[in-house]
Design a protein around this nucleic acid. Structure first.
Lengths: 347, 347
DNA sequence: CGGTTCATTTAAAACGTTATAAATAGGCTC
DNA sequence: GAGCCTATTTATAACGTTTTAAATGAACCG
C-alpha cells in the first residue's frame, strides 16, 4: 500500500509556515492537483488516495486558505447579516444569528455582521457588499413594500433573504412572521378581557409589517365593534421616553385607551411606565398584549400577556432558504411564513 | 505630457468584469506595477503619474480586490470583535462598535463580528481566528484575571485589545472602566441618601471587574461603617427571573437591604420588580444606583440613579489602541482607563 | 501488438495583488 | 561621448488555490 511517501524528497518544501496543499502534496507524494481534488471529494480520485489525503490533512491540521480560494473561485463563503442599531437592542440580532449559525453548520459559510451606523437606510452597505463582492449572500430585515435594497439585489441577481415581505411583483425569497394574526389575536384578547378601547403601537409606517399589524388589529376591533385608536405620534422605533411621555399624556386625557397591543417589548415597558404616572395599574385599569422576542419583558412584568415570535427559528429558516437560493434551486419553497403560537392563560 | 495613453493597444484586456489593476494599466499606459505603486502612494512614483492614476481609478471606480491583497500580503484588513450573547442585550455591542467604527474610519480595516454561541468561553473562536488568520486584530471583553484568551494571544504575538484588565504580569493593551470608582461612588450615594444596608449585584466572580466593583463597594461601606451584604446566589448574567425571585425572597426576610448597587440596567429592572412584590417603592423604601449604558433604564424608571459608562468612547479607544498595537508602536499608551462621570442630582 | 478505451494522476495556467530585482532614460561629471 | 548617478518605470515571480488540458498506464479488443 501507499503507507510511506513515495519519492517526495527533491521537492522545494515551503519554509515551515502554515500547511498548504503543497505541504500535503510533499507529504503524500501526490501532485497538488490531486490533493486538492481528493479534499474536495472529486469523483475521479481513487478511494484509497482520497482516504490517505484526508488522513494526512487531518493529522497536520490542514485548513484551506480562504483568501486563495476566494481569489480563485470568486466565491467568498461569507454570508453577511445587516443589522440596524434598533435591532440589537434586546438581542434581536443574537437570536436571529443563533438560528442562522445553526442552519450554516456543515456548510463552508461564515457569518459576518455588518452593523449599520449613520445612514438610516443600509442600501449603501448593500451596494458596497455587492460591488466589492464581500459576500455570497445577504440577510436583512426592516423590509419595506418597495424596498430599494430588494430592488437592487434583484436587478443584480444577488442572493438574499429578507425578514418580511415586499409588494414587488417579482417574487423573491423571504421569511416572515404572520403579523396579521399576531395583531388580530392580541386585540381580540384585550377585548375578551373586557377592554373597551384598544390601541396599538406600530412600527414606522414605511415598513411592510406595519400594514400587516394594522390590518390585523383593525379586523379584530371591527369584528367586535369596539372603539379604538391608533396613535400617529409615536412608533416602535421612537425614543423610549417619547413613547412613555406620549402614553402618559394620553392617559391624562378623556377617553384614554384601556388596552395596548405592543409590537415590541421595549414599547410595552414604556407604556407601563407612562400609565403608572397616573396611578393606573397593569391588569387592573388596563391590559397589554405584546410581542415577545426575549425573556426581558415577561420576567420584569409577568402581568403582560405576550405572543411569541421565535427569532431563532426565523434565523434558521432564513439560512435554509438562502442556501437554497445560492445553490440555485428554483424559487419554490423560498417564501416562508411563520405562524405565531398563541398560548394565553385561561381566563 | 502623458495625457493620452501611450501605445496601450496590443494588451490582452480582461474580458469586461470588475476593473482591476490591469484595467488601469491599459487605460493609463503604465505597467501594472506602476499603477499599484501609484495607488499606494509609493515614494518613487512621479507626482504626475500618481495624480493621473488616481484620477482614472476614481473615474472608473476601481476598488482593490481584498482577496488578492490578502493572499499576497498575508494581511486581512479585518478587525474581529468577539461578542457574547450577554452583551448584545441592551446594545452593548452596538455602542462599542459605533465607537470602533469611528476609530477605524480612514483606515483600510473592516469590522467583522464573531458572535459566540454554544461554548461559554470564546477561546475556541480566538484560536480559530489566529490559526486561520481570519483577522489582523481582535477585540473582546469579559476579561478574567488570568484570561486564557489573553495568554494565548500574547504567546502567539497576535494584536488584541480587551475590555477590562487581567492580573497577568506581561503588560498588554486594554481599555477599562474604573469600576472601583463606580461602585465606591454608587455605594456612597446610597449611604448619603440615608440607606442603612447597601448591597451590590456583581458580575460572575471569575471576571476581573467583579473584584474591582466589590473592592469599591467595600471601601465605601467600611468608610461609612454601615451594614451591607453581598449575595452569592445571583450575578449580572443570571437569568432575569432568578434575580427578580431572589430579590423578592430576600425582601421578605428580616434585615433586607435598602440600597442596591446594580452593575447593569437589566438587573436594576429585575430588582425593582422583585421589591415591588412586597409593596416596596423605589425612592421611598429603597434606592438603586445602577450603571447606565443605554437609555432604557432611565427612561423606564427615572427614579433610578445612574452612573454612566460611555461604551461608544470605549469602542473608540479600543480601536485607537488596536491600531497602535498593529502598527507596532511601543506598549506605552496602550492601557487606557476611563473614569466614570458622576452627576447625581443635588440632594 | 498497435490501437482504443478507461481510470487516475499530473503539469501548467490563472485569479489580482505586491515584492524583488532589473531596466530605462535623463542629467551630470570628467 | 563614455561613465555614472538618480529618478522613474518595468518585467517577473510569487501568495495558495482551482480549472483546463494533457499525460500516464493498465486493460481490453481486434
Amino acid at each position: 500500500m501507499v503507507d510511506t511517501p513515495k519519492s517526495a524528497a527533491a521537492e522545494t518544501r515551503p519554509k515551515s509556515g502554515k500547511p498548504t496543499l503543497r505541504t500535503l502534496a510533499d507529504l503524500t507524494g501526490f501532485a497538488v492537483t490531486t490533493v486538492s481534488r481528493a479534499l474536495s471529494n472529486a469523483p475521479q480520485i481513487s478511494a484509497e488516495t482520497r482516504r490517505r489525503v484526508h488522513e494526512v490533512a487531518a493529522e497536520i491540521g490542514y485548513l484551506p486558505d480562504r483568501a486563495a480560494q476566494r481569489l480563485k473561485t470568486g466565491r467568498t463563503n461569507v454570508i453577511s447579516v445587516l443589522l440596524d442599531p434598533h435591532e440589537e437592542i434586546l438581542g434581536y440580532g443574537t437570536s436571529l444569528m443563533l438560528g442562522l449559525a445553526k442552519a450554516l453548520t456543515d456548510t463552508p459559510y461564515h457569518i459576518i455582521v455588518t452593523p449599520n451606523f449613520m445612514n438610516d437606510s443600509n442600501l449603501d452597505a448593500v451596494r458596497h457588499i455587492v460591488r466589492n463582492s464581500m459576500a455570497d449572500g445577504l440577510i436583512f430585515s426592516r423590509t419595506e413594500p418597495f424596498d430599494p435594497r430588494v430592488r437592487f439585489l434583484l436587478e443584480n441577481d444577488f442572493p438574499f433573504v429578507c425578514h418580511g415581505r415586499t409588494e414587488l411583483s417579482t417574487p423573491h425569497p423571504y421569511v416572515d412572521y404572520d403579523n396579521f394574526s399576531f395583531a388580530y389575536e392580541a386585540a381580540k384578547r384585550l377585548i375578551t378581557r373586557g377592554r373597551r378601547k384598544p390601541t396599538i403601537i406600530l412600527p414606522p409606517k414605511r415598513m411592510t409589517f406595519s400594514q400587516h399589524l394594522m390590518h390585523g388589529f383593525m379586523t379584530a376591533v371591527r369584528e367586535a365593534g369596539v372603539a379604538y385608536e391608533i396613535p400617529e405620534e409615536i412608533h416602535l422605533d421612537s425614543p423610549i421616553d417619547h413613547i412613555r411621555d406620549f402614553i402618559s399624556r394620553r392617559a391624562g386625557q378623556p377617553d384614554a385607551p384601556d388596552g395596548f397591543v405592543c409590537g415590541g417589548e421595549v414599547s410595552a415597558l414604556a407604556t407601563i411606565t407612562g400609565m403608572s404616572d397616573h396611578g393606573l395599574a397593569l391588569g387592573v385599569e388596563y391590559d397589554i398584549v405584546a410581542k415577545q422576542t426575549s425573556k426581558l419583558l415577561v420576567n420584569i412584568q409577568p402581568k403582560v400577556e405576550t405572543i411569541y415570535e421565535d427569532l431563532t427559528d426565523t434565523g434558521e429558516q432564513m439560512g435554509r432558504v438562502l442556501m437554497a437560493r445560492i445553490a440555485g434551486t428554483n424559487t419554490a419553497d423560498m417564501q416562508v411564513m411563520l405562524k405565531p403560537t398563541i398560548n394565553f392563560p385561561a381566563t
